[in-house]
Every structure is written in structure tokens, then in C-alpha cells.
Design a binder for these strands. Structure first.
Length: 404
DNA sequence: AGTCCACAGGAAGGGCAGGCGA
DNA sequence: TCGCCTGCCCTTCCTGTGGACT
């Protein structure tokens, strides 16, 4: 694009009417005034946590529901209301909220405790201290608090699967050693079978109360989207059927409201870029494709270099063959390592990397037995040509640059 | 009924980077 | 500076296993 073209593009962009009135209304951080189809859960959580306003420690609660079923939204909403009332009536009440899945922030026991301590006003280093020291500092900070402290741990299943449930046990027992502070845990899990991973002692004390968040159905999603579109888009920006299409697609995908909102937002962005002021169904299809592509590419980008090499090998091999086995991948991968002059990892590690790529949803791997011919993973790739191309290019660029 | 393949996947631990406290 | 800590990536060693073959 020449410089004058760019200039006119910018100028057109400024002059053009946007389809969006307030794009924030379609993001996950947006707090709608009216939360639809979750009255029951709000009331349940509210009544469980209400005793905290009288200085009593509420029961520990566990919220279950898959991605995009409104758990986080409801917790933040109830947290806000609680804090407002506590402030009005001058009650000692603190609610901490932490997402345990945030990389480099709260994805280990140490980081979680450090983050909690920091939220209580303690100054702690991000690394370097022994874990029991960080625990002590957190404990001291709690002591200072007085009143009730509710600790909301979002995506707690991810952390427990990673580091075990020891830290949860410690947290649930912390009240035994505190006099003036009362701690209550609010766990939020995407995995409904999560408690299977936990020790029964932790399980019973943590899930004194449980609230289930069922997936939204297509009709509920449509109402949610309708409400948000009125705020997010200018009038007449959407063609008929766009909202229904977004809701239907998201309903298929486990009733995920987040996905529905993303679809609508990206469809709007795509429409805007294609210089039209009407969002059509076709934009939703393209949005679906773009979201998936961005997700996969970003996931792979953050993987270690050998994971990229293994994926590259798999992509290359599945061009010709539908399904391949771990052993085949490993020998091809070794050749690739020689080619790019990188020392190869062991089969054990490569096996682990394949399993990680499977869990991340980048490839499909299924353990099968071929009887006399052993047990292996059957690996296949279900990605569109454009995603494949983008991934291959990323790895090629990566290693070309590292060679220099 | 027993064997045996080709791995899966758990456990333990090494080595390194980044960081703290004395 | 040194000793120590955690997190991360990785290796080594190991046991487990579904089902075709004998």
C-alpha cells in the first residue's frame, strides 16, 4: 500500500460511521446491568455469602459449570454488591478474586499465595522465597485483616490438576489458627468432575455448598445477545438472523455465552473492515473461522521450541497420511532436528509434547492398541488449510531466525 | 492361555535461569 | 558474592496395558 493510499484509508476510516456504538458491551469484562437467566444462581450465592455481613464466616462454596456459563460474571457481581453494602454499613469484609489459570501470575502454589498476600497489601517478591515463608507472610497479612475474608479462586481445577490439592487443604484449615479473621473459600471450576481429583478431606470441607451453572440454550443465548447488541451496535447494524446464527453456533459449543459474544464482536469487526455497515450471516461464518485460527496460532506460539518442531513434523506427515503413530513422528522429528541443527529430545519427552498438543486442542491424539503391533497414539489433525499454512510458516520463520 | 509389541505415562531427580537475603 | 529457593524443561528408569498373534 502506498503512502497516499494509507492516508486515504485512515481518513476514510475516521469518516466512516462505525457499526459499533460501544464495543465493550461485547467483551467478557463488561458488567451488564441486568444479568439474564442466572437469577437462581445469584440468589443462591447471595444467601450463602450473606452471613459474612454479620461477621460470621460463610460456608465454603463451589461453583461448577463449563466455560461461558456466567460463573465469573456472577461472582464479580455478588462481590460488588457485598462490598457496597459492607462499605455502607461499615463492616469488615474483604473479597479477593484470583484467576488461577493466569500464566505467570497464579498458576503455582507460590504464585497464588504471593498474589493473595499482595491483594492484602503485603509486599512480596515474585520469586526467591521458600513456599512456607510466603505462606507465613500471607497468614500474617490475613491476621491483620479482621472480619471476614472471602477468597474466590477462579479456574481452580486447572491449578489442582497442575500442583495437587495440598494448598487447598491448607487454605481450608487456615481458620483453625486465626482468631479475629474468618476465611471462606469460593472455588470456581470449569470441570464438573473436578472433585474426583481431590482428597476426600478437602472435598468435604470445600464443597459445603455447591451451585451448578448449566449451559445456556440457544434461546437464552439469543436473549443475552439481544440485550447486548442494543448497547453495542448502532441501530440497524445487524441483518436478520445474525443473532440467531451466533446463538446457535455457541449453543452447539457447550452453551458458551463468551463464544457467542466473541462471534458477534468479530463479525462486527470483519464487517467494518470490509467497508459495509451491515453485519451479515456470512460475517459470522468468517468470524467463527478467525476465532479458531487465532486461538490455535496463539496457543502454538507460546509453546516451547521442540513442541513447535513436533507439531511441524505432524503437520508435514498428515499431508499424505490421515493417521500417524507416535513412533513414526519421533523418527521424522529426529531427522528434522538434524536438519535444523538442534539436539533432539527423548521419546518420553516427545510423547509428553504430543499429549500436550492434544490437550490444547491443536491436534487429535487417541491411544489405540494394535494388538501384536503394540499400543500407540493415533494422531490426526483437523485444521483448515489456512491454519495449517499459518502454523507451518510460523515454525519455519522461527527456526530460520534462530539459525542466524 | 500366554506372549509380546510399542508405546503410555508415573516418579524421581538433574540442570539451568531468575531472584532473594545476608 | 554465596547459598538457597522456585519454576521449567528435560532425562532416566520404570511399570502398565489392549489385543493380534502363537
Amino acid at each position: 500500500m502506498s503512502q497516499s493510499n494509507l492516508k486515504s484509508m485512515f481518513s476514510n476510516y475516521v469518516d466512516k460511521e462505525s457499526v459499533f456504538k460501544n464495543k465493550d458491551a461485547l467483551t467478557t469484562n463488561y458488567k451488564p446491568d441486568n444479568i439474564l437467566h442466572r437469577e437462581q444462581q445469584i440468589n443462591d450465592l447471595g444467601s450463602i455469602l450473606a452471613p459474612s455481613l454479620k461477621g460470621n464466616d460463610p460456608s465454603n462454596v463451589f461453583l461448577y459449570g463449563s466455560v461461558g456459563t456466567g460463573k465469573t460474571l456472577i461472582v464479580k457481581h455478588v462481590k460488588g454488591e457485598l462490598k457496597t453494602v459492607a462499605k455502607d454499613k461499615d463492616i469488615d469484609l474483604n473479597v479477593l478474586y484470583i484467576n488461577c489459570k493466569m500464566k505467570k501470575v497464579a498458576d503455582t502454589e507460590y504464585r497464588l499465595l504471593a498474589k493473595l498476600a499482595r491483594q492484602l497489601g503485603e509486599d512480596v517478591p515474585s520469586t526467591g522465597l521458600p513456599t512456607d515463608e510466603i505462606y507465613n507472610r500471607f497468614f500474617e497479612a490475613l491476621k491483620e485483616q479482621k472480619g471476614v475474608v472471602i477468597i474466590a479462586l477462579d479456574e481452580i481445577d486447572a491449578l489442582v490438576k497442575k500442583v495437587g490439592d495440598e494448598f487447598l487443604y491448607n487454605l481450608t484449615r487456615i481458620n483453625d489458627d486465626l482468631d479475629e479473621t474468618k476465611v471462606s473459600i469460593l472455588g470456581i471450576s470449569n470441570d464438573l468432575n473436578f472433585t474426583e481429583y481431590m482428597d476426600s478431606r478437602v472435598k468435604s470441607s470445600l464443597s459445603e455448598e455447591e451451585i451448578i451453572f448449566p449451559p445456556y440454550n440457544a434461546i437464552e443465548l439469543r436473549e443475552i445477545l439481544k440485550e447486548r447488541t442494543d448497547k453495542a451496535f448502532v441501530d440497524d447494524a445487524l441483518k436478520d438472523g445474525v443473532i440467531s446464527k451466533c446463538s446457535a453456533l455457541a449453543a452447539q459449543e457447550h452453551g458458551d455465552a463468551r463464544r457467542a459474544l466473541d462471534l458477534l464482536r468479530v463479525a462486527g469487526e470483519l464487517a467494518e473492515r470490509s467497508e459495509t455497515d451491515l453485519i451479515e450471516k456470512e460475517h459470522v461464518d468468517r468470524a467463527q473461522d478467525k476465532i479458531e485460527r487465532d486461538r490455535v496460532v496463539e496457543t502454538v506460539r507460546s509453546q516451547p521450541k521442540h513442541s513447535k518442531l513436533v507439531l511441524y513434523t505432524i503437520l508435514d506427515m498428515t499431508e499424505d497420511e490421515d493417521k500417524i503413530a507416535t513412533g513414526d513422528v519421533y523418527s521424522e522429528y529426529k531427522d528434522l532436528c538434524t536438519e535444523v541443527d538442534v539436539s533432539e529430545l527423548t521419546q518420553r519427552r516427545v510423547s509428553g509434547l504430543i499429549s500436550e498438543l492434544d490437550m490444547l486442542g491443536v491436534i487429535n491424539a487417541k491411544v489405540i492398541s494394535k494388538g501384536r503391533y503394540g499400543r500407540t497414539r493415533q494422531i490426526s489433525v483437523d485444521l483448515s488449510e489456512s491454519i495449517r499454512g499459518q502454523l507451518e510458516k510460523m515454525v519455519e520463520d522461527n527456526f530460520y531466525l534462530e539459525d542466524e
